[in-house]
Amino acid sequence: MTHQDFLRSLVDPKDRTPLTLSDDGKTLSSQAGTTYDVLEGGIINGLYPKDLLAEDAREQYLYDQAYLRYDRGVSWVFQTLNDSDEAATRQFMIGLMELKPGMTVLEVGAGTGKDSALIIDQVAPGGTAVLSDLSPNMLRLATEKLKSETVDIHFLLANGSYLPFADDTFDALFHFGGINTFSERKQAFEEITRVVKPGGKVVVGDESVAPWLRNRPTYATLLKANPLFRAEVPLEDVPANALDFKLHWIFGNAFYVMEYKVGAKAPEVLIDLPMPGKDFVDNWRVRAEASDREKAE
């Protein structure tokens, strides 16, 4: 996907109508007249809403301040978590997407590009990596670090709850390390699933100490020191068309990562399928209706 193809693939994150590139190449405009700037280095500012919700604005500010020390700090965190092997665990997470050369992948929350580099390696040659983040400073640092002669790389400022892409754009999507703080988390799950083709993989992870460890002394200290680790795995936000769902605990069981395939539609139970071997009507619907009658009596 060339840069021009990438620009043509973008839609208004508000209403998903096409965007038109200006003659000077500096802005993209929606049919409603909303404009999105093309920044230095070709980074697209696709953020919506323009005035972020309070929690998202706070996270953007914090990451913009911490971008130069972020990688060192994260590596220290992982070392404290049972001296976890950061490189091997990142390889494990990226491997869950089952990437192949030539694929088109979106990373939401690319940060400084640690995981992005692994994605780029796995879709080479001929693939496309679209790397988005909420923080301009983090994304600029990633543009300095990530280069490839065989993979098209595109950078985008975007809110994970409002992605500027049409349905079924990507072969896979990855996000690690921010979903728990999203102001509109359920909508973000809907968005990151919407833009992946049916059959494609979604991989998402963040902080959450495993339930069976929360009363252990050192983990209890961690929960007091950093409230992010108190987060629960957001299973209730996973879309109904998530298929083959799996949940993994990583980094000393203080982080989770979930994987699922995107289904063309949500699965259904065959509640009217007759039970074999019966000489009377029996199925799940009949049993449910009988249960309702018993409760009513």
Rank of each mutant, 00 (worst) to 15 (best):
G113L: 01
D133H: 02
D24G: 07
V257S: 06
R140L: 11
A225E: 15
A254Q: 04
V74N: 13
D133P: 05
S161Y: 07
K224H: 13
S30F: 08
T89F: 11
A220M: 03
V281P: 04
A124T: 02
P267G: 09
K147M: 07
D244C: 04
Y162A: 11
V196P: 01
S132R: 05
E294H: 08
I179A: 13
S30W: 08
A266H: 01
L131D: 01
V202W: 01
E294S: 12
D56N: 05
L134V: 05
E40P: 11
V11M: 07
N226Y: 13
D64Q: 09
V269T: 14
K261R: 14
P227T: 09
S30P: 07
M1R: 09
Y48S: 02
V108W: 02
T2G: 15
I44C: 03
H175R: 08
T104Y: 02
L106S: 00
T221Y: 13
G252C: 00
F280I: 09
L134A: 03
V202P: 05
R185C: 11
P211N: 10
V130I: 15
R230L: 10
A288N: 10
T35K: 15
T112D: 09
D237N: 14
R185W: 07
A172Q: 09
K295D: 06
K224S: 13
P101G: 00
Y67G: 06
R194Q: 02
K201F: 09
P49Q: 02
N45I: 00
V209C: 00
G160K: 07
L10Y: 03
D206A: 09
R285C: 03
V74E: 15
D167Y: 02
I43D: 00
P198T: 06
L81E: 12
F92A: 07
K278I: 08
M275E: 14
L156C: 10
K201G: 05
L62H: 14
N226Q: 11
D133F: 02
R69I: 14
R140W: 08
L53Q: 12
V262Y: 08
D279E: 13
P227F: 12
L131C: 03
T2R: 11
D152S: 15
L141K: 13
L62W: 10
T17N: 13
S84Q: 05
D167Q: 10
L141T: 04
E191P: 00
F280W: 14
P125S: 02
M93K: 14
L163C: 08
P136L: 12
T181P: 01
T143Y: 06
D206F: 10
Q4G: 12
F182G: 07
E236D: 15
V108Q: 01
V130Y: 01
